[in-house]
Amino acid sequence: MEDKKTEESGRIPGSRKNAVFGIVILFAVFPFIAGDYYVDIGFFFGIYALLGLSLNIVLGEVGLFDLGHAGFYAIGAYTTAILNTQFGIPILVLLPVSALAASLFAYVVCSPIIHLKGDYLCIVTIGMGEIVRLALINNPFDLTGGPNGVFGIDFPSLGGLLVIDSSIEFYFLIWIVVALSIIGLLQLQQSRIGRAWNCIREDEVAAEANGIDVRSFKLLAFVLGAGLAGVAGNIYASKLMCVSPESFTFWESCLLFSIILIGGMGSIPGVLIGAAAISLFPEIFRPFAMFRMLVFGAVMILMMMFRPAGILPRKRGGMGFRPDHGNPVDDK
């Protein structure tokens, strides 16, 4: 225990520790000095950070091309929306329920397709995401409210003690969840599980030949990633008080995909940077109105030209990763 701690602090340079501390302070102070509008932007940054973290498990750690991640997000959001509006179950109770629902969905859907390789898996995840979205639009059993979605979702509350209904409270809710997720995911990265995931990303055959049950670990990544996306869906639904299919399009999945690649595959600080880019960029360029998406596309291309491994690629061991070696999951 003690031993480990000294080793850890020996490995993380002091400057980095200070940087983390500074960022935490910044995040904590920000909502008290900024207006509600900016706090809301901070909230959506948090949602994208959580979604990015969840996709990072699948795409970043294991290298599975998941372009249907918005589907899991939708399952979480709609589970919350439907159970809350129909049965009045409190939002915070539904938080784990949404996570479980999304995980279960991922398990059932991914089990039969997990053996598919690269782009074939990619198109199947796209199909899965589209099926979810189209199903929501078609209003099965009158549950999902069709294209309009579900309205009148409650705010989260702690048994009447504290109702989370202001921008600032939602801001803290999402960022506390993000912070806890980051701590958990950092632990996983340093564990047998995280290593197994990375091995699969690097070389599936070698991973299998070194005793890693590739199939189960891929499924595990999908299940955990979906669970986390489900949590994001829960918080998103209660913040907006309504959900509709147009929040969960293929386009949304593509944005999440870009978060990982802009930030750096498998890098948790990278996910935060990527999420910031995706959520803050359109706001910063709001004055340019119609042209902002043009700029956005151009930035994506330029990013890939000059930093193909992402802005903050994952550092390994003491030496660090060399971005100029190109992509970690490039086909050989």
């Binding site: 290593r195 197994a196 990375n198 690097e202 070389d203 991973a207 070194n210 390994r316």
Partner: peptide, 22 residues
Amino acid sequence: RLFSNMTCLENIMAGQHCRASA
């Protein structure tokens, strides 16, 4: 067939995957 972007130490640690259970 090594895990090329992982460190040498991590490569060997990966070898012990099946002898661990966490």
